[in-house]
Protein backbone atom coordinates (compact mmCIF):
# COMPACT_ATOMS: atom_id res chain seq x y z
CA UNK A 1 0.00 0.00 0.00
CA UNK A 2 1.70 3.17 -1.21
CA UNK A 3 0.18 6.32 0.23
CA UNK A 4 -0.14 9.52 -1.82
CA UNK A 5 0.39 13.09 -0.61
CA UNK A 6 -3.35 13.58 -0.68
CA UNK A 7 -3.97 10.53 1.52
CA UNK A 8 -1.38 11.63 4.06
CA UNK A 9 -2.95 15.09 4.17
CA UNK A 10 -6.40 13.55 4.60
CA UNK A 11 -5.27 11.34 7.51
CA UNK A 12 -3.53 14.33 9.12
CA UNK A 13 -6.75 16.30 8.77
CA UNK A 14 -8.78 13.51 10.39
CA UNK A 15 -6.23 13.38 13.23
CA UNK A 16 -6.20 17.21 13.53
CA UNK A 17 -2.45 17.38 13.01
CA UNK A 18 -1.03 20.33 11.12
CA UNK A 19 1.83 19.12 8.94
CA UNK A 20 4.70 20.68 7.02
CA UNK A 21 5.49 19.50 3.48
CA UNK A 22 8.65 17.85 4.85
CA UNK A 23 6.60 15.91 7.38
CA UNK A 24 4.15 14.83 4.69
CA UNK A 25 7.04 13.50 2.58
CA UNK A 26 8.57 11.65 5.51
CA UNK A 27 5.31 10.12 6.76
CA UNK A 28 4.34 9.11 3.22
CA UNK A 29 7.43 6.93 2.93
CA UNK A 30 7.48 5.62 6.51
CA UNK A 31 3.76 4.86 6.78
CA UNK A 32 3.70 3.17 3.37
CA UNK A 33 6.59 0.96 4.43
CA UNK A 34 4.85 0.02 7.70
CA UNK A 35 1.49 -0.60 6.00
CA UNK A 36 3.12 -2.93 3.47
CA UNK A 37 4.21 -5.07 6.40
CA UNK A 38 0.61 -5.32 7.57
CA UNK A 39 -0.34 -7.10 4.34
CA UNK A 40 0.83 -10.31 6.02
CA UNK A 41 -2.52 -10.38 7.84
CA UNK A 42 -4.33 -10.99 4.56
CA UNK A 43 -2.76 -14.48 4.56
CA UNK A 44 -4.74 -15.43 7.66
CA UNK A 45 -8.06 -17.17 7.18
CA UNK A 46 -10.41 -15.46 9.61
CA UNK A 47 -13.70 -16.82 8.27
CA UNK A 48 -15.93 -17.51 11.26
CA UNK A 49 -13.45 -15.90 13.67
CA UNK A 50 -15.00 -13.34 15.96
CA UNK A 51 -13.05 -10.13 16.60
CA UNK A 52 -11.58 -9.84 20.09
CA UNK A 53 -13.71 -7.21 21.73
CA UNK A 54 -12.65 -7.34 25.33
CA UNK A 55 -10.00 -9.09 27.24
CA UNK A 56 -11.35 -9.46 30.72
CA UNK A 57 -14.05 -11.98 31.50
CA UNK A 58 -16.24 -9.27 32.97
CA UNK A 59 -19.15 -8.02 30.92
CA UNK A 60 -20.93 -4.80 31.74
CA UNK A 61 -19.74 -3.23 34.93
CA UNK A 62 -22.43 -1.46 36.91
CA UNK A 63 -22.40 0.74 39.95
CA UNK A 64 -25.01 2.66 41.80
CA UNK A 65 -25.85 6.03 40.30
CA UNK A 66 -24.77 7.93 43.36
CA UNK A 67 -23.20 11.36 43.32
CA UNK A 68 -19.77 11.53 44.92
CA UNK A 69 -17.58 14.46 45.75
CA UNK A 70 -15.70 15.95 42.82
CA UNK A 71 -12.78 18.36 42.65
CA UNK A 72 -12.96 22.07 43.42
CA UNK A 73 -13.31 24.28 40.35
CA UNK A 74 -9.96 25.96 40.91
CA UNK A 75 -8.17 22.59 40.88
CA UNK A 76 -9.92 21.52 37.71
CA UNK A 77 -8.84 24.77 36.08
CA UNK A 78 -5.32 24.69 37.50
CA UNK A 79 -3.76 23.24 34.34
CA UNK A 80 -5.85 25.23 31.85
CA UNK A 81 -3.76 27.15 29.30
CA UNK A 82 -6.46 29.85 29.17
CA UNK A 83 -9.26 30.57 31.59
CA UNK A 84 -11.71 33.34 32.32
CA UNK A 85 -14.35 33.70 35.02
CA UNK A 86 -13.86 30.14 36.27
CA UNK A 87 -14.29 28.66 32.79
CA UNK A 88 -11.96 27.14 30.22
CA UNK A 89 -11.44 29.77 27.56
CA UNK A 90 -11.72 28.53 23.96
CA UNK A 91 -11.62 30.20 20.60
CA UNK A 92 -14.91 30.97 18.82
CA UNK A 93 -16.21 27.90 17.04
CA UNK A 94 -18.98 29.63 15.10
CA UNK A 95 -18.08 32.74 13.13
Amino acid sequence: MKLTDEQVKHIAWLARLAMSQAEIERFKIQLSHILENFDILQQVDTTDVLPATQLSASRNVFREDKAAESYPQQQILANAPNQEENCFKVRAILE
Binding site: A15, A18, R91, I93
Partner: peptide, 22 residues
Amino acid sequence: VKYGFSAVNASSAIDATEKTRQ
Protein backbone atom coordinates in the same frame (compact mmCIF):
# COMPACT_ATOMS: atom_id res chain seq x y z
CA VAL B 1 -7.96 23.55 26.04
CA LYS B 2 -8.26 21.89 29.45
CA TYR B 3 -4.61 21.18 30.16
CA GLY B 4 -1.27 20.76 28.46
CA PHE B 5 0.55 22.65 25.77
CA SER B 6 -1.47 25.14 23.73
CA ALA B 7 -0.34 26.82 20.53
CA VAL B 8 -0.46 30.59 20.79
CA ASN B 9 -0.68 31.84 17.23
CA ALA B 10 -3.78 30.42 15.61
CA SER B 11 -6.49 31.88 13.43
CA SER B 12 -9.39 29.65 14.51
CA ALA B 13 -10.40 26.93 16.94
CA ILE B 14 -9.48 24.15 14.50
CA ASP B 15 -6.23 25.85 13.55
CA ALA B 16 -5.38 26.06 17.26
CA THR B 17 -6.05 22.35 17.77
CA GLU B 18 -4.00 21.37 14.73
CA LYS B 19 -1.05 23.56 15.68
CA THR B 20 -1.18 22.49 19.33
CA ARG B 21 -0.87 18.87 18.22
CA GLN B 22 1.78 19.60 15.59
